[in-house]
Design a protein around this nucleic acid. Structure first.
Lengths: 193, 193
DNA sequence: GTCTATAGTATGATAGAC
DNA sequence: GTCTATCATACTATAGAC
């Protein structure tokens, strides 16, 4: 177990707080307090709030990239890979039921704030979309791969939103089952549109 | 054209600003400025920020209730009614592509703020869910009506999130078409799960 | 009902000692 | 690298004149 640098500890806690409480609603004081350093020290590592947001988004991008690569290495067929993606909803069930999807909620918030880093946050969604698209292409859905990728993404976002506003575990599991069934039908060539 | 009272004008503008910029990110000054009154006068009508949020949610609840009643009066069959619900995505296309769904984004934001009025905001989602459930029951899906209602809600939320983070008009229309097709299959009894 | 003035607090951010 | 001030600003909210 390697000791994280102060900078990395800040990014880690900011990441968590931005997710759980929202970016705008999280203050420097809160992050500093959680990390266990003073506000002044905080500014030694990050000069502005946008700087730490950029670092958090960068970290999220890298983490997701690694995750997708790991699935690509582990799962040999495209169907299993897409199922791995969908399974995030089950793996992160309890957090999603409380705070929704970290990617979707940040994109939405930055959009409303008209924040300059909105485009950066959207890149995480982009990463998923492009990866899913490649999987559907590998499945032979050349023409519809983009459409199918967007459909899977929209599905996962919708489930996350509803799970965090009154949904229960069973709801998530039912929807995941439904989506897995849809994937099977797509793979079998049963779905044209 | 009846002249709105100052109170109603405040609610109307606050509703719009909460949707477009978010609740927390909208200040009293901004609302007062938009309405064209002073901050002091604002406090004559609403004493706290939570008071105006409660009024906005109450107004939204009433408006949606009327909308659902109007559809129930206009559309005689359940399939048409559910399609009317789905069609909101097309009707409000341009705003959804910018700010997402007013209902979903407020619920998510209040959740992260751990706001006391979170439950009130969720009631709007609840209203949709119960209405959709009744439509599916009328369709003869007694056992699965709740599941199907949640599925339609999740679908609409997912499309709204993705449309506001890189989606285009065509994406919304493709998904609406896909969902309408699914409704037809449910009505025909082709879908069990 | 509408206004001006102002209190009190929290925030993002800086300066400078150790 | 870490800390203790400190600043300027924006915000919610109140008091009181007209």
């Amino acid at each position: 177990m390697i000791q994280l640098s102060t900078r990395d500890r800040i990014i880690k806690e900011a990441d968590r707080l931005f997710y759980e409480r929202g970016f705008d609603n999280t203050s420097f004081s809160e992050i500093a307090e959680t990390v266990g350093i003073s506000r002044g020290n905080f500014y030694h590592h990050f000069r502005t709030k946008d700087e730490i947001l950029a670092a958090v988004i960068g970290e999220r991008l890298a983490a997701r990239r690694h995750l997708l690569e790991a699935w690509e290495a582990r799962d040999t067929d495209a169907v299993s890979r897409i199922r791995s993606f969908i399974h995030i909803l089950v793996t992160n069930q309890s957090k999603i039921m409380r705070y929704g999807c970290p990617v979707g909620t940040l994109c939405i918030e930055l959009g409303k704030l008209d924040h300059p880093l909105q485009g950066e946050a959207n890149k995480v969604m982009e990463l998923f979309r492009a990866w899913l698209r490649r999987q559907f292409e590998a499945l032979g859905c050349a023409k519809d791969a983009e459409d199918f990728a967007m459909h899977v993404l929209a599905f996962s976002q919708g489930v996350a939103v509803l799970a965090s506003t009154g949904g229960d575990k069973e709801f998530i599991q039912r929807e995941v089952k439904r989506m897995n069934q849809w994937i099977e039908e797509v793979a079998a060539g049963a779905i044209k549109f």
